[in-house]
Design a protein around this nucleic acid. Structure first.
Length: 431
RNA sequence: GGAGAGGUGGCCGAGCGGCUGAAGGCACCGGUUUGCUAAACCGACGUAGUUCUUAUAGGGCUACCGAGGGUUCGAAUCCCUCCCUCUCCGCCA
């Protein structure tokens, strides 16, 4: 969330940001917030005055009782009514603070000056266009669904039977290939890019969702297990960023870089009918996520590093891709700046999002209260948090299967994965 | 699921209902001493809100001892609920 001091001092900046984000409906909230804030201040002052009086008189009462001189009856009676008055104010104050908190949690993050202004996904800027690798697909290409079915490596029907639509099953060499991808990506980030591997819980509590900003905004997109009041993670970002929630991290340890595999669960409520075929939109998918905690002055450099780390995976796999710089109307509410990496699908003849790399500055750190001391005796400051998919396997698998198919209908395994799969090709005779 | 113990500042740890924002120790910071380092000694040392002043600093007031309620003139301290950690028993993977 934003610093309330920043909003007090720069309300017009906040309004400008909302305008750029195409969130006109949110604009009245700023004035409302400032109204509540002023009201709160008046109430706090009056309540603090009463508390000061009560503290002072309570000490007098103590003195009277100790010395045994005089009577405290009258004072106690007075303080009783003062306490009642304070209690009344606390009720009002609690209400106000709840509303202030609510608005603060809902307001989106600032935008970095380099973010292009635009209305929708159509206005995203191409940061890096068509990074390609040589392929000979001069034959009728099959799409990933056809390949998955003919090779017996993907089973959407049975997935739907055991769970529901959007829960794909990988079989045989398909399962092995998926696992190879995950292992390759994790090894790459830990051994070559300097990340520490984390295997996080796949269920989290509500505080964690709130810490990274999925709560309250995306409450309806997250699977909720009522019995234990836990939520299935939509991304490893949630448990991994929250590892340091409420902590004072050691300044010398910064930047902290974590790479984590997790399954990701998304309800995708309201998006039925859009890109629903096969892997294009699923409720459960696998992803390796990179998370960084940095000093504020280093976060934008770290964002480029994360993007490069994600690109390195595609380069190694020789998967064609491009990088977009998201515009103000398309970027998520939590991020100040975000790159999307999209992989090419020869069958769909379009780019598919496989990674998002974002800087959140102190937006998540403030929610999750993650601080550090810049100097040993200095005041604590919020760290900056960032993350990027490195990468999600589902769309990656689409592009991989389609690019590596042969005229005979088999799929070759990318060079760098063979060490993990221990087979070179997936043919129809797969077990 | 049952029984017990406990959650206090960056860390460890003491704390009788009023004199406790909190002893003591460690770490960090400033200084003295010292050939360097270390040690020793001295000093400073939480966060947030608000207000005042002789206002790049200092003072006052308020809140914060796992979270939320309650009792009380007054709660770190007593009571209740919840969360977490540890130990033991039971059950299960």
């Amino acid at each position: 969330m934003l610093d309330i001091n920043y909003i007090r001092q720069n309300p017009e900046e906040v309004l400008k940001m909302l305008h750029k984000r195409q969130l006109a409906s949110e604009e009245p909230k700023v004035a409302q917030l400032l109204d509540f804030d002023r009201e709160r201040k008046v109430l706090v002052q009056r309540s603090d005055d009463l508390k000061a009086l009560r503290n002072k008189v309570s000490k007098e009462i103590a003195d009277i009782k100790k010395s045994g001189i005089g009577s405290s009856e009258e004072l106690i009676l007075q303080m009783k009514s003062v306490s009642e008055e304070i209690a009344g104010m606390n009720g009002l104050l609690g209400n106000l603070e709840e509303q202030i908190e609510k608005i603060l949690l809902e307001l989106p993050n600032k935008l970095h000056p380099s973010v292009p202004v635009g209305r929708s996904a159509d206005d995203n800027q191409i940061f890096k266009d068509s990074v390609s690798f040589p392929y000979n697909l001069d034959f009728p290409v099959k799409n990933h669904l056809e390949l998955g079915k003919s090779l017996g490596i993907l089973d959407f029907e049975r997935g739907a039977k055991v769970c529901g639509a959007g829960f794909p099953v990988y079989m045989g060499k398909g399962a092995r290939l998926e696992r190879a991808l995950i292992n390759f990506m994790l090894d790459c980030h830990t051994e070559r890019h300097g990340y520490t591997e984390v295997f996080p819980p796949f269920l989290v509590n509500q505080e964690s969702l709130r810490g990274t900003g999925q709560w309250p905004k995306f409450a309806d997109q997250v699977y909720h297990i009522e019995e234990d009041d836990l939520y299935a993670i939509p991304t490893a970002e949630v448990p991994v960023t929250n590892l340091h929630r409420g902590e004072m991290v050691d300044a010398n340890a910064l930047p902290i870089s974590y790479a984590a595999y997790s399954a990701c669960f998304r309800r995708e409520a309201g998006s039925y009918g859009k890109d629903t075929r096969g892997f294009l939109r699923v409720h459960q998918f696998n992803k390796v996520e990179m998370v960084k905690f940095t000093r504020p002055e280093e976060s934008y450099k770290a964002l480029e590093t994360i993007r490069e780390n994600a690109e390195a995976i595609l380069t190694a796999l020789k998967i064609p891709y491009r990088v977009l710089l998201l515009c103000s109307g398309d970027i998520s509410a939590n991020a100040t700046k975000c790159y999307d990496i999209e992989v090419w699908s020869p069958a769909e003849q379009k780019y598919l999002e496989a990674s998002s790399c974002s800087n959140f500055e102190d937006y998540q750190a403030r929610r999750a209260n993650i601080r550090f001391k810049p100097e040993s005796n200095a005041k604590p400051e919020f760290v900056h948090t960032l993350n990027g998919s490195g990468l999600a396997t589902s769309r990656l698998m689409v592009s991989l299967l389609e690019h590596y198919q042969t005229p005979a209908g088999s799929v070759m395994v990318p060079e760098v994965l063979r060490h993990y799969t221990r087979f070179d090709e997936i043919t129809q005779t797969t077990e």
